[in-house]
Design a protein around this nucleic acid. Sequence first.
DNA 1: ATATGCATGTAATGGGTTACATGATTGT
DNA 2: ACAATCATGTAACCCATTACATGCATAT
Lengths: 185, 185
Amino acid sequence: MSNSKSPKLPNTAYAVLGILSMGDGFSGYEIRKWAETLRFFYWSPAQSQIYAELRRLAKLGLATSEEIPQEGKPDKRVYQITDAGRETFRTWINNQPLEPIVMKHSLALRLFFGQEAEEGRLEELLIQFIAEIKEGLAQLYIVEEFMEHHPQFSHQSLVALWGQNFYKAELATAEEVLARLREKN
Amino acid sequence: MSNSKSPKLPNTAYAVLGILSMGDGFSGYEIRKWAETLRFFYWSPAQSQIYAELRRLAKLGLATSEEIPQEGKPDKRVYQITDAGRETFRTWINNQPLEPIVMKHSLALRLFFGQEAEEGRLEELLIQFIAEIKEGLAQLYIVEEFMEHHPQFSHQSLVALWGQNFYKAELATAEEVLARLREKN
DNA sequence: ATATGCATGTAATGGGTTACATGATTGT
DNA sequence: ACAATCATGTAACCCATTACATGCATAT
């Protein structure tokens, strides 16, 4: 079923493959929880999309899919990466060039067009943003702490550190911008 | 043609509306150039998408569209924001809640799954990334300098500052992570 | 000669979202 | 009682990308 040469897949598929490569057997539900951590640095697809990607990977022979009957819960479908899947993933990580960072910063967009905002609106948004960032930072600390206690996650904890630095920088910038806006009035 | 209540639009449409609100009359081509600056903090849609959004705005009565004959060049279609369009834009900026930051950081994704990478691959990617960030920073300095000489762009220059801080933080983090990877070997 | 800038548009494809549908178990 | 967790899936929709198509003027 698998193509001889690694097929070209959307990045979401590689992310799912990558998660599958970290253990032996995940349900869609478990993948989804990992994806929630990933959202700090990469993406956060809808649940339906994760299931769709898993089905695609299975169809391409990059993962096996097995139905596990369960009592008291709906049946679980467990996906496992195949040799072809691991090969595809390695080809991606070792050969696919970096893409430019994509950022959708909804506050920056509003700030950019701030001349159309009401008096005080931007300050309000910045204060709200600062609170959200602090919340995100707290979550990242928890993620990193967990990973530091599990040596097999050394790369993942490196990325948690990356996220922390990003959030700290966002915090500092938001405070700087807020101060500038206030001193203009 | 315009709805009595502001219609709900995709963010790309608001971004285009916002650019239209900054002057009186833009061609799709000019919008596109502004969008290229926006990409540092928000988004970078395909050319065809910008033209599609402009047509949508015109159909909704949020912008007027006028064909300007030109010699030696293809005709130009100039779009101008209407009162209804400005109203829609203000409603958006003043009432629409912030959305969470969306980030697609292709390097972080690879780093996260670094256990599958070949010896030296991550270092190679980091070095490449650092070069790209430096290039981006240089461009942002140019953008900010331009805007600081034009007082009507004070909000825009604030966002250019935001972008600089982001890029500087990325640079520092990339160097830190590179150092950590090297000391592990 | 060749590339870049100006200038707009269509067609095919697909990645991804939102909403809906179902249902038992466990914790508050 | 109610919310959260576990667990998967379908249907409708559309935003967005890629590729293609055209063509003159100007700079290298």
